[in-house]
Design a protein around this nucleic acid. Structure first.
Length: 163
DNA sequence: GTTGAGCGTT
């Protein structure tokens, strides 16, 4: 079943029941009219989610993004990536890592004064994808440079324990 | 417009 419909169907049914019961407290004009109202609620409650799902599915297939980072709930791991080409930007690095898992954030370190990139950075990824990404992307040839990918050392003390 | 081992910032 379509996801939005599955989520909204209980509310639609509840609303239909409430409408049905509501007629008990009103001067009833006729059973036929009551049935039409209830059926109308059901039809709207089913058709709208179906249309939402169909449009949403088309949007997802056209965007080609596996999963929005802001929607990911779970443990994350920060990877150190070194030996980056100076010309590489964050989007290129993110796209590369996204081939092998969920990427939460990419930060390429740059010189504070000049703003030029320093050739390394940190990629925050889903914890379950971290080791796979290290396997796949360490010593990976990226724009004529051989990447170095490791698990990042933690600068902050007394934070989460690494595996 | 430069550099080439490296583990960081709101």
């Amino acid at each position: 079943m379509l996801p939005t419909l599955r989520a909204s169907l209980p509310y639609t049914l509840a609303l239909a029941v409430l409408a049905y019961l509501g007629f008990a407290f009103l001067p009833v004009q006729g059973f036929a009219q009551e049935i039409f109202v209830v059926i109308g609620i059901m039809l709207a409650g089913i058709l709208v989610p179906v249309l939402v799902d169909v449009k949403g599915r088309a949007a997802v297939t056209s965007s080609a993004v596996p999963l929005a980072a802001s929607d990911y709930k779970g443990d994350t791991t920060t990877l150190y990536v070194g030996n980056l080409p100076y010309r590489a930007n964050e989007d290129a690095v993110k796209e590369l890592f996204q081939r092998f898992g969920v990427v939460i954030n990419v930060r390429l370190m740059k010189d504070r004064q000049t703003g030029r990139r320093r050739g390394f950075g940190f990629v925050e990824v889903a914890a379950k994808d971290g080791n796979k990404m290290i396997q796949k992307l360490n010593d990976f040839n990226f724009q004529e440079r051989t990447l170095k990918v490791r698990e990042a050392k933690e600068r902050q003390d007394s934070d989460d324990a690494e595996e």
